[in-house]
Design a protein around this nucleic acid. Structure first.
Lengths: 182, 182
DNA sequence: GTCTATATTGTGATAGAC
DNA sequence: GTCTATCACAATATAGAC
């Protein structure tokens, strides 16, 4: 059994991602985590510290993902596109939750997402040897991610990654292998 | 002088985009629009009708933009990339505001953005003659838009579109002209 | 059309029992 | 560690004066 602290953090991330920042109230999170509001506030004395802890969790999960990306068999770029297809993994749930905090104006959330985004871009640029193609690949991946996430949270069915689009992306990635380093 | 109704709608869009959905309260909107809360509620009897009116405004502005895109001198694709660089136009402000509503779980906002997004994709596909390249261009444009918007609202300085990235996009667009229709 | 109350509910946080 | 009260405040919305 996960600790109460972990269950509360899970419930908070879930409430943020699924119901939106506005509905992620202490009441809702406590109910979802199976504790009382008082119980919740013992582990996280304020709502702000809940957000803080969630950002820390995101950093840890993202660091793991960056490592996996570097070691991916088909290369970081194709790994990034593949995993840009929101799949409700712990990283996905946390990233979407923190994105909600960012949209609500939380400066820590904004800084966290920007920093992690920079890490991903660096790995792509190192692997492709071309910062411009790396940016294009990252933008396409980000666009796919937003789209899939928006569908998932809107209750839409999950569609597979389009083969034709993948072919276009493959051409983009392959072209960089020949291009001179910038 | 704009009508009170228009000023209230402007203030609501501004509050949503700049301060986030949570801070776009009736009090805040009324103050920004220079009317009392009671005055606001005369024009929009509920907060829900404010959101409704904003979605309608978005549809009108987006329809204009689709027309401009079709007639763009450098073609719809390059027009889309150019205007993906958040510039605080009326369309930008309204689109970001409605995006905030979507993120807060408003189903009308979600439907509106999806419908407009589909219109843009259709124009791109018609112009490029290749639905897959059109999707890639749209995803890159969307990614650029999110990034520029996030910077603008985070108070970051506005940076010009990167020349190298534009070259990569140009190659992507040009390659579609030769490709067979799908 | 616009204002000033005011009713009502939801939310974050505290106090103190167990 | 977890709970039940309870407080203070903010938010939507209503009623009715001007």
């Amino acid at each position: 059994m996960a600790t109460s602290r972990e269950r509360i953090l899970d419930a908070y991330a879930d409430a943020l991602a699924v119901d939106g920042e506005r509905h992620a109230t202490l009441d809702a999170v406590a109910a979802k985590a199976g504790v009382s509001k008082g119980g919740l506030l013992y582990h996280f004395p304020s709502k702000d510290q809940l957000a803080e802890a969630l950002c820390e969790r995101l950093f840890a999960l993202a660091a793991d993902d960056v490592d996996k990306m570097r070691d991916a068999a088909d290369g970081p770029a194709r790994h990034y596109i593949r995993t840009s297809h929101y799949a409700n993994t712990p990283l996905d749930r946390t990233l979407v939750a923190v994105a909600r905090l960012q949209q609500a104006g939380d400066p820590r959330a904004r800084a966290a997402i920007e920093q992690i985004s920079d890490q991903w871009l660096s790995v792509l640029a190192d692997a492709l040897g071309d910062r411009d193609v790396a940016r294009a690949v990252k933008l396409i991946g980000d666009g796919l991610y937003h789209h899939a996430m928006s569908n998932a949270l809107g209750g839409q069915p999950r569609t597979p990654l389009d083969e034709g689009l993948l072919a276009v992306i493959d051409r983009l990635i392959d072209q960089s292998a020949d291009a001179p380093r910038t």
